[in-house]
Design a protein around this nucleic acid. Structure first.
Lengths: 215, 215
DNA sequence: GTCTATACGGCGATAGAC
DNA sequence: GTCTATCGCCGTATAGAC
């Protein structure tokens, strides 16, 4: 009946507000008072539930990382199962890697969109880019690279990692949804158009991998 | 004889320190006291030379943007002149776009490396990504997209802009040099290896453009 | 256990005196 | 150009109410 905000626990409201604000202004651009005001709770409640500010940041990152990894791992499993003993194509693997992201970003869920923008910030940050991204996502990424290695048997391993690096950059800028593309293209391409953003990304990235991983 | 720091004006020392610190911690992660302490000048000198903090940030961005745009614009001119009436290839254009970046990032210049990391931060930031990137770089980018349009006459214009978007993401993550690639690949690929990072990026991105811009 | 009110020491950007 | 003062907000700790 009433809006969901009244149903959510205060702890969840803190996580939601922190997710949104961190994604917009970065770790240092947000104060605990900004967060607790938005969540409509007392300042001291953050410390009670999460400890210091950095631990709240980690809790925000962790909350959806587990869900995301499960969904994408399942997509890879299905892709591998579907190929069976037959041909496993680069396109199929990249599709399994990106399509779940596109579906989530194209959905109406504000929380996920904030989370994606936060990951974009983290991935490009010298402070968090190495440690945080590795901690939450390297196991999944390694599985995908292993699949690519099978689909591209002639690939040089180092080129494969660089290919993933370009994919990671293209993906996280898409997740950031800054609106710059709209300005650049005079409104022709819209960075909020997740469907097109991911639909083009799949063949673009697959072709890139082929180009640098062929014999 | 003595180190260059003594020769530089206080104003330049402030810009150098701000460039380094902003690139490492973002706009909000740095205080004017951090900057002036690093530059060995009084706190109030920032306000005297640049006005408020945000104006210092813009001055840092602007200082090298003009140099960068000139170098890359020249590279595009040379590329177009070289093609003449003959075939203008996607690879040549992407090479002209990326090679100057690779040379600078591979050089020993610390200042430029800090600047590049700062651009990576800005490009993925919801606060600055649209406005700042557009302000400094859209004219140059539009020239490159125009060249790509000639090399890919069957291209859908919207796909062309999305292709640039992926290029932009891949490039700025490379510029960020976060070290995550080292961790992911167990040291096999090194994100500080600008030569390899750009050498692979050129064929990767060119193939991507072809894939989504063919008839 | 959950949560609130309040307090503390420290440091922030900036303006105005010099 | 430099120094200092101002005022407000910062993260966090704690004591105690429900």
């Amino acid at each position: 009946m009433s809006s969901e905000s009244t149903k959510k626990s205060r702890k969840e409201r803190i996580l939601d507000a922190a997710e949104e604000l961190f994604s917009e202004h970065g770790f240092d651009g947000v104060t605990l008072r900004n967060i607790t005001t938005a969540a409509n709770v007392d300042v001291a409640l953050v410390n009670y539930h999460f400890g210091p500010k950095r631990d709240l940041f980690d809790a925000v990152l962790n909350r959806r990382a587990e869900v995301l990894n499960q969904v994408r791992s399942d997509a890879l499993d299905a892709c591998l199962l579907n190929a069976g003993d037959g041909q496993l194509t680069v396109e199929d693997i990249i599709h399994a890697y990106l399509a779940p992201m596109g579906e989530i970003q194209g959905s109406a869920d504000e929380g996920w969109r904030h989370y994606f923008a936060l990951i974009a910030y983290v991935n490009n940050s010298p402070e968090f880019g190495r440690e945080v991204m590795s901690q939450y996502f390297n196991p999944l990424v390694s599985r995908f690279i292993e699949a690519l290695r099978k689909a591209l048997p002639d690939a040089d391993d180092e080129a494969l990692y660089w290919g993933y690096h370009y994919l990671s950059g293209a993906l996280t800028l898409t997740m950031a949804d800054t609106g710059r593309l709209d300005t650049l293209s005079n409104g022709l391409a819209k960075s909020a158009d997740a469907e097109k953003g991911y639909a083009h990304m799949i063949p673009f990235i697959a072709a890139g991998f082929r180009a640098i991983c062929a014999r």
